[in-house]
Design a protein around this nucleic acid. Structure first.
Lengths: 228, 228
DNA sequence: CAAATATAATAGTATTACTATCAATATATG
DNA sequence: CATATATTGATAGTAATACTATTATATTTG
């Protein structure tokens, strides 16, 4: 993907980390290698001790960046949503027609992830796998309400809000724009999970199917006006 | 809900437990109290030691019923889906019209749960809360593929398959019946979660809204034939 | 070069998620 | 009714996890 200027950074709520991992070499290695490790052995099996071993650093050093692995997961998933949001805005900004805009937006968030060379230490393909397999665990906790208040989920919520608005622009009469927006984002992750582990529970097996499925669902549900 | 004969039991894959908890008094207390505890302190905070304390029994005794708390969660959630499946079949069995049948099915799985007096040691309302908050964790693991092969998710998969068939009966041309079925089941849990913790991400705030949202979504998407 | 800062090494703690052993008790059967 | 058998309870022990604390050693910067 072509960018207008070379250095875009994804801004993460600084309550999520103790020290900004983007600010140092060690921090970047923590992010880079934690993505590889969580993708490999899963979030449950992942520990700071193992990560320290892999990056040739010490457990205690990692604790100076993140309070615990839950916060690290929040960081990674926030980064992913921020990155996706950037692509979403970039790709839809110039589209005037409301239906075309929504169509493009659905495509952006439901298509398979490809590597973005702009962020060298982050493998977006593996990260999107982590989001598919682990994102729910970041909010299905007893701490959800306090963490939500702290703003740990703002980027995700803003994404949903953007869809909400695009849906409203297509059909202002539709009664469930937020629910539909949530269904697209969360449902897309779920369809990718099903494809890999419960293939009989999905019809989205080929590249592009998930996009088609949600596009079909949304545009049958909304009453698009001419030149909305 | 009225039943035809007094004792219906929900059959659970016997690989999930070491000893059938339905077969003894202690087993039933394990189920009863684990529902209260998991609902209360969450699956992460829940341990067999705490449960033993609460039911006045011993940690080691609980291990004679379940290998670990993950298996106990599989048991509880399987029971829930089995219970819901029973209601689904019972309520839709006699409906001839395919659209009416699907409509009823959507209603059954998207409406709020109410207590069923037929199973005295199980609080279905709390259990449905557990399913909303913890079900994903039972399959978002590195063991998913082996556990799926062992048949730990058969009831859930059968539910989706039933929806798949009902959708097909309404519109045999529709290309994504399994995906849509998955979206209804998984999406419904998600809408209930959002209502409690991210209210701005859903429009389903009042009783009946989730049912209306999914009914609207499904019947706009499918082309129902007259007397299908 | 000195002071400040970042990182590494080591040790230690409470809790978790079990396993093993043995005693006590309840239940079944002959 | 006695004995075998199954069930449950109590206690102890282990390896790993999820940290915290302290001190030592680099590295940066003023």
């Amino acid at each position: 993907m072509e960018r207008l200027f070379g250095s875009v950074t994804i801004k993460i709520n600084d309550k999520i980390f103790v020290k900004d991992p983007a600010s140092s070499d060690l921090g970047k290695r923590i992010i880079e290698q934690s993505i590889l490790m969580i993708n490999d052995i899963g979030f449950e099996g992942f520990t700071f001790k193992k990560l320290g071993l892999q990056i040739g650093s010490n457990e205690s050093s990692i604790y100076r960046y993140f309070e615990n692995k839950h916060k690290l997961l929040l960081y990674l998933t926030s980064w992913y949503w921020g990155w996706l949001e950037y692509q979403l805005v970039f790709a839809t900004n110039s589209i005037g027609d409301t239906s075309e805009k929504l169509k493009k937006a659905i495509e952006i968030v439901t298509r398979p992830t490809v590597k973005d060379s702009a962020f060298s230490h982050i493998n977006e393909v593996l990260l999107s796998n982590i989001v598919i397999n682990e994102y729910s665990k970041s909010y299905l906790t007893k701490e959800i309400d306090t963490e939500n208040k702290e703003g740990y989920f703002v980027i995700y919520k803003r994404m949903i809000e953007r869809f909400n608005e695009m849906i409203h622009a297509v059909d202002s009469e539709y009664k469930y724009p937020s629910s539909l927006a949530s269904t697209i984002l969360e449902g897309s992750l779920h369809q990718y999970f099903l494809k890999d582990h419960f293939p009989s529970l999905t019809d989205c097996h080929e590249k592009g199917d998930t996009t088609k499925y949600f596009t079909d669902l949304v545009f049958h549900t909304l009453k698009a006006k001419q030149n909305g």
